[in-house]
């Protein structure tokens, strides 16, 4: 089965802001219909279909309930692939951060406080980006224009980069 459009599968319009309790209701209702447990006594062909449909349902739910995954999905559908450009304004700071991480790995514990400060800074940046995204999502939903998607694409790239950094620092600080 070719994967159908996730929004359509849930009977929803393609929007970046979604009413999550409503999505959950739909998910539970569809699960009751499609889950293999509901078709265990059926013919093999129907069991096969149920397995396929239920896998798509779960994949779709996982994608749509997470705002970032949802936006990535919609962008990909609209032909906006992830860019290979890192946000230039962050690079110097990222470089210094990596140097500090290397020193920490080398056994220099004194850089811990520097790393903790960096983590706080990047977490704040992440929040800032998220707030910005929320605004962009709302704007797109009010008037879905491709131009708005370009801006969202850039913001998501930035977000991805920052969240990778946070994870990296996190795992070094609390291995």
């Amino acid at each position: 089965m070719d994967a159908p459009d996730y929004f359509q599968f849930f009977g929803l319009e393609a929007r970046l802001s979604i009413d999550l309790p409503d999505l959950e209701n739909r998910f539970y209702r569809l699960s009751r219909q499609l889950h293999p447990d509901r078709h265990a006594q059926a013919a093999p062909s129907e069991r096969e279909r149920s397995l396929e449909a239920s896998a798509i349902l779960n994949d779709a739910y996982r994608t749509l309930r997470d705002p970032v995954a949802r936006a990535e999905y919609l962008l990909k559908q609209q032909g906006f692939e992830q860019s290979k450009q890192a946000p230039a304004e962050l690079l110097d700071e990222v470089f210094d951060l990596n140097l500090a991480l290397e020193e920490l790995r080398g056994g220099d514990v004194s850089v811990r406080s520097r790393l903790e400060a960096a983590r706080e800074r990047f977490l704040a940046l992440l929040q800032e980006t998220d707030a910005g995204l929320e605004g962009l999502f709302g704007a797109y939903d009010r008037s879905p224009a491709p131009a708005a998607l370009g801006e969202i694409r850039a913001a998501l790239n930035r977000r991805k980069y920052i969240s990778n950094l946070v994870q990296q620092v996190e795992s070094e600080l609390n291995p």
Binding site: S83, A86, P87, A88, L90, V94
Partner: peptide, 13 residues
Amino acid sequence: GMVGAPECGDVMK
């Protein structure tokens, strides 16, 4: 020259 790749967090000077 300072460049980076967003998907893997690589950074190159």
